[in-house]
Write a protein that binds this DNA or RNA. Sequence first.
DNA 1: TTCTTGTTTTCGTCGTACCAAAAATGCGTA
DNA 2: TACGCATTTTTGGTACGACGAAAACAAGAA
Lengths: 235, 235
Amino acid sequence: MDKVDETGRAADRVVRSLADQIRSGALADGQPLPPERDLMEAFGISRTVVREAVRTLSSRGLIEARPRHRPVVRKPGYDAAFDAVGSIVTHLLGEPGGVKNLFDTRIMVEAALVRQAAQEAGRGDIAALKDALAANGAAIADSDAFYRTDNAFHGVLYDIPRNPVLPAIHRAYTTWLAPQWSRMPRLPDRNRANYEAHAAIFEAILMRDPDAAETCLRDHLDRAWAQVRETFGDV
Amino acid sequence: MDKVDETGRAADRVVRSLADQIRSGALADGQPLPPERDLMEAFGISRTVVREAVRTLSSRGLIEARPRHRPVVRKPGYDAAFDAVGSIVTHLLGEPGGVKNLFDTRIMVEAALVRQAAQEAGRGDIAALKDALAANGAAIADSDAFYRTDNAFHGVLYDIPRNPVLPAIHRAYTTWLAPQWSRMPRLPDRNRANYEAHAAIFEAILMRDPDAAETCLRDHLDRAWAQVRETFGDV
DNA sequence: TTCTTGTTTTCGTCGTACCAAAAATGCGTA
DNA sequence: TACGCATTTTTGGTACGACGAAAACAAGAA
């Protein structure tokens, strides 16, 4: 009993063990990891191995390791999963068609979301949507605020199905596509047009018309994409 | 000019440099990474640092590192991104509602896919669906083959939009949800019912009826989920 | 040519050491 | 007593050297 897993590299064993402790809560969220010297004693291994393990845990998102600081345990949520792929995605976005591919999946997902919203949104959801829309309308003049409230409005759509994966997806989209967006020209006219697109989507949801909602949403995002192409050419 | 990036840990610099070389193709896909000794000389660092860098690249999916073998460069595609989160996802699936949350997103995505298929599938797509369906029908008696052809049928749906992200998503779903599925009882009756569900979806796509296609798809996956619950209870 | 057997390379791990930054400690003062 | 600052201790980041074992390679035999 209590046999240590001997599979693979020593560092991998340590990774598994520590990962288990994080899962089980033995290493609580937010708490610093024990010092490397303690770990090497606890596991009977060299510091080399400890450091390798820590590095792996770090890139898996199970701990947060700022240089020269004690790594902090971070119980992984759905966001951590998306964080972990950040570097790869950044690269993929750099190749031809990368941004387009990602944006197309976003269109697909949000199209599905507005359909769902039109069919199943409850009172509270409608109210949240309405508030987000109003905030967006009030920010037409201020492009920074508009950007935020725009995201927030879309974000409400991801909240409606009450599936914690979806808000994480939204955050991933906004994070990954932000570089493109932030380099777009800030035109109040566009803001107004986008606000009106949001209003149309809201209207369609209110009318419980999934087809109209999807059409409005696709129209909205297609236009946004067209603007990206205007600005950057093919990406 | 040509200034070395001094930001962060030495290992991180090496990671960035090697990642760039992989991106640029200077380190070609499939080619083994230079020996650690060469790298330490090339970068003017100790082997300790080289190993840390290699570890990080490995967990980012930029290289494939079997123990005791030279790491092999792997140009990251969309699959690599999903591989990189595998360990986190595995953990998330372990918590209550984890599988359900993931499966719900799958339902959402595939519902969107069949709608799209119903509206835009070309001749070739229809033919591919038809073939996949036939293969699935021929495998009703053999549960292993049925599982494969089942996946393949769903996979065709992910191919139709010609967005390389989508097949990667499908592979991710099948990989992550496989553990559940493989422990389900193999009943030919269920196979037959699932085949008929596939046939109904195909029929709806053929009729260019997105609503019917979505309904069939949701019905199909909801049933599958019900079976999972029957077998495992709440997950 | 293919298989077998050395030989050399390379990885995995250990241990020690040093520096600099962070954290803990203690002291003096308000 | 409580607070601010200087000092000591801890701890992470990196380097160097070493060794065993597995893998890659090369040479010779069948």
